[in-house]
């Protein structure tokens, strides 16, 4: 390697050669972000698959004739509101306001439980109308399959997020979780909200 090249590489190596934090974040936060990227790619694959199926089918039922869009809007409102309370909990935890952090964690848990209840109601209603993975009354088999796979994967993420939040709230109340623990739980919860933004638009509105 020439002198010029080695001079150029020196700061790069100091930055990425280990023992440093190239992203300016703790390893926990860096790993959480890497997990979020990989999980985001899972949903990216699912949504691309849905786009493929929809285009290949040619015809597609109009969503407003199948779903209650105001009800889906209510679910969106619940999830966005729970993200707001989660953000408040993270900041309160960082500032050392334990009471405010706990209250907002509990609000978030209530929001998550309400969202899951709405989703369970929507699924039961959809199944009651005759929707199955391989057929449905609206004539395009891929329609119900896309619905079950997309909302099912998202719902499973909401459920696991809810479990993480309950554990975090209990540990936070006992003083066993640092502020960073609340922040990690918050990152995951916001990711769940982020995914819903795409599902809501691409599956329910378009």
């Amino acid at each position: 390697m020439t002198d010029a090249a080695s001079t150029h590489m020196a700061p790069l190596e100091a930055h990425w050669g280990g023992g440093a934090a190239p992203f300016g974040a703790t390893w926990q936060k860096t790993m959480m972000w890497i997990f979020i990227v990989t999980d985001g790619l899972l949903f990216s694959g699912l949504l691309s698959g849905y786009g493929f199926l929809r285009q290949a089918a040619g015809v597609w039922p109009h969503q407003s004739q199948v779903f209650s869009i105001p009800f889906i809007a209510l679910m969106t409102f619940i999830l966005i509101t729970s993200s707001m309370t989660m953000g408040t909990a993270v900041t309160a935890a960082r500032l050392g306001d334990r009471r405010k952090a706990l209250h907002n964690l509990l609000f978030t848990i209530v929001g998550g439980a309400a969202f899951l209840s709405c989703q369970a109601y929507e699924w039961s209603h959809f199944i009651h109308e005759g929707a199955r993975l391989n057929h449905n009354p609206w004539g395009v088999p891929q329609f119900a399959a896309s619905f079950f796979v997309l909302t099912g994967f998202h719902g499973s993420h909401v459920f696991s997020g809810l479990v993480i939040l309950i554990i975090t709230a209990i540990r936070w109340a006992m003083g066993k979780t640092p502020a960073q623990g609340v922040e990690m739980a918050g990152l995951y919860w916001h990711f769940v909200d982020l995914v819903w933004v795409f599902i809501f638009t691409l599956f329910y509105l378009l």
């Binding site: 190239p22 992203f23 974040a25 918050g186 916001h190 982020l194 933004v197 795409f198």
Partner: peptide
């Protein structure tokens, strides 16, 4: 999506490479 990632997930306060 940008608002959620930037403001709720604090991505706009993180380093640009992240």
């Amino acid at each position: 999506a940008t608002m959620i990632a930037g403001n709720f997930m604090h991505l706009r306060f993180e380093r640009r490479n992240l």
